[in-house]
């Protein structure tokens, strides 16, 4: 039961971190005048609250899982303190909680001053750290020495690239939905396309690093529930690639022709978002699933 809850909380937490970082990535790399995208203040504020809430839930659920104690004892101060101070997860959790707390202050400031450049830059750095440090509690820890460091770095790069791409797509969708979208949509779409290619390259690079470490386990993946989830994830990702390709090659060049392309572009971008967050949901579950080769 707690495993399912951990998977759900992880997925929501990842999604919140991605949405949050994506907002700042959009401001820095997509928005033509570095203007805050539609809904920036509300989205960053609420996702930051969600980020902190899911962090707290995650700690409680991990304490329950790690200790094996009944609920009341597992959530007692003593057990939570041991988890937070005597485990790798806990120490990274403390750092991430502090980062998310400061980020909430910055986001609160941006709620009233959404175009404040320095606050935007600080928010971007904090959101990037909150997202990238998820790698510090991930499966990269399973390795040793330099391999562990390389694996964690690859995971962090992967998270940031996915965050900029998927998280940055959301404000683009909102922009494309505005009545006066067309003048802004052309440069925003072009810039997002460039960002998307850079992110894809980073995702592939970090993925290749992981192949280097884990390729021996690939054949067993197809015979287990773990493997089926992997295949689902790959299928969703390939669909995203196809949609992104259509957007870049077919729809974006036609954008100047009128609203019809804009509507199609927005529809495809929404579909990419849905598929992308579907992948995030799968990743939440994958992290707690035993891979086939290790089922003894």
């Amino acid at each position: 039961m707690e495993s399912a809850l951990i998977a759900a909380v992880r997925a929501v937490h990842f999604a919140a971190a991605i949405v949050l970082f994506g907002q700042f990535a959009y401001v820095g790399a997509v928005s033509p005048q570095r203007e805050a995208p539609p809904g920036f203040a509300r989205i960053t504020a609420w996702t930051c609250v969600l980020l902190l809430a899911t962090l707290l839930l995650w700690l409680g659920l991990e304490a329950l899982s790690m200790s094996g104690l009944p609920l009341r004892e597992a959530l007692g101060v003593q057990t939570l303190a041991v988890v937070a101070t005597q485990t790798v997860f806990g120490r990274v959790w403390l750092a991430r909680f502090a980062l998310a707390g400061v980020l909430l202050l910055v986001v609160s400031f941006l709620y009233r001053h959404p175009s404040h450049r320095r606050a935007q830059a600080l928010g971007a750095v904090l959101a990037a750290l909150v997202l990238a440090t998820i790698a510090g509690v991930g499966h990269g820890l399973a390795g040793k020495g330099a391999d562990r460091a390389a694996h964690i770095c690859a995971d962090a790069l992967h998270l940031l690239a996915a965050g900029a791409w998927l998280g940055g797509l959301l404000p683009l969708v909102l922009l494309l939905g505005r009545r006066d979208a067309l003048p802004l949509a052309v440069p925003a779409t072009q810039r997002f396309s460039t960002l998307g290619i850079a992110c894809m390259a980073a995702i592939l690079l970090s993925g290749v690093v992981n192949v280097w470490y884990m390729v021996a386990d690939v054949p067993a993946l197809v015979h287990t529930s773990y493997g089926l989830m992997v295949l689902a994830k790959i299928s969703l990702f390939l669909l995203i690639i196809v949609l992104a390709g259509i957007n870049r090659s077919v729809l974006a060049p036609r954008l100047l022709a009128g609203d019809a392309a804009l509507v199609s572009l927005r529809r495809n971008a929404i579909a990419e978002c849905v598929l992308g967050f579907g992948i995030v949901a799968i990743v939440g579950q994958l992290g707690i699933t035993v891979p086939g080769p290790h089922m003894h």
Binding site: H139, G207, V211, W212, M214, V230, K233, I234, H296
Partner: peptide, 22 residues
């Protein structure tokens, strides 16, 4: 490119293969 994408994706999820202490 497709092979690279597939390889990267499989690797991303395959990283959990060492993720339990046995």
């Amino acid at each position: 490119f497709s092979r690279l994408v597939l390889g990267a994706l499989i690797a991303l999820v395959a990283q959990a293969a060492d993720a339990h202490a046995f």
